[in-house]
């Protein structure tokens, strides 16, 4: 009796960890059955390219969610970064470095504002980041008067649309960043603190961890990644668009949750998020390949989110 129940617990643990990867594989196979076009390298290229901007911002979102926060401002930061990149680079390669640094600086500043309000004023991050999203949007509109201008130079365009074979440049960056932050979360003191804070903020504080600074840093990283994601989108588009990152905040949260990171914090990680991002993007591609209306993907996405949340909470109860 004892050994079987332990075996069952182990099995559940495995399912919890790798279940979502199995879903990804199943999806990968089904997509090919629905349309053989799916496996074409140009299509895989498209899927990976579309996954990478979402992926990059989802890394930041994962960190924020792991400490028990949430960042609804990333879509707005992305668009702001995209619009400024086009306007200030004006298509000239020699301006890429300073302007990119400026855009990333905007992201850091935005994250700093989010993080400071959340930590110093102890305000609910949902409301704070919803509010700051509006502020960043306002700044963008004041700057562009509603009409973005400028264009994106070839270096940044390569970032957004270039690549080798079926591997887009942006997905390589996304995977590198994911690898780095998976390592940071697993192996560094900083990563361990993130989990501890997510599990129990009070205990972490009473254990001498500077909770406010760690939480603040996750928002800064999220802002930085959002700005970077905005640059990738700018490269993908070739011009500034006032609404470039629209909906990315919710897609990122969905990808993180589908990947097994708990919205309560403390559980999950980057690996799951990478899988979650790929699932969300493949669903998008699959729905289009199947010739279903684009709105249909909302239904499928919603189903995946609902089922995975139900699944994770079921596993959580078995403890």
């Amino acid at each position: 009796m004892k050994s079987t129940s332990i075996a069952r617990a182990e099995w559940q643990n495995l399912v919890g960890k790798y279940g979502i990867a199995i879903v990804l594989v199943v999806l990968f196979v089904t997509a090919g059955i629905i349309s053989p076009v799916f496996y074409r390298s140009a299509n895989i290229f498209n899927v990976l390219q579309q996954a990478s901007a979402l992926g990059i911002v989802s890394i930041g979102q994962t960190l924020v969610i792991l400490v028990g926060g949430i960042d609804l401002s990333i879509g707005s930061i992305m668009a702001t970064s995209c619009v400024f990149a086009a306007a200030l680079m004006r298509g000239q390669n020699h301006l890429v470095l300073p302007v990119a640094a400026f855009c990333l600086g905007i992201g850091v500043l935005a994250g700093l504002i989010n993080g400071l309000i959340v930590t110093r004023r102890n305000a609910p991050p949902f409301i704070v980041t919803l509010g700051t999203a509006l502020i960043f949007q306002g700044i963008r509109f004041v700057y562009t008067k509603g009409a973005p201008f400028g264009s994106i130079p070839s270096i940044v365009r390569f970032l957004g649309k270039g690549g080798i074979g079926f591997l887009p440049a942006s997905v390589i960056i996304f995977l590198l960043l994911s690898g780095c932050f998976a390592l940071v979360l697993r192996k560094t003191a900083y990563g361990r603190k993130i989990y501890a804070i997510g599990v129990n903020r009070r205990v972490s504080h009473l254990s001498g961890i500077n909770v406010a600074n760690v939480v603040l840093s996750t928002y800064v990283l999220s802002g930085l990644f959002a700005a970077f994601g905005g640059l990738v989108l700018a490269g993908y588009l070739g011009f500034g668009d006032n609404w470039a990152g629209k909906g990315y905040e919710l897609d990122a949260i969905a990808a993180v949750v589908v990947g097994g990171t708990s919205l309560a914090g403390g559980k999950g990680g980057i690996g799951g998020t990478v899988v979650g991002v790929l699932i969300m993007t493949i669903v998008f591609n699959m729905v289009l390949l199947a010739g279903l209306p684009y709105q249909f993907q909302q239904i499928v996405k919603g189903l995946i989110i609902a089922v995975s949340v139900a699944f994770y909470s079921y596993l959580g109860k078995e403890d």
Partner: peptide, 8 residues
Amino acid sequence: QYCEWSPV
């Protein structure tokens, strides 16, 4: 298909 008036 609908594209929500979004370039992306």
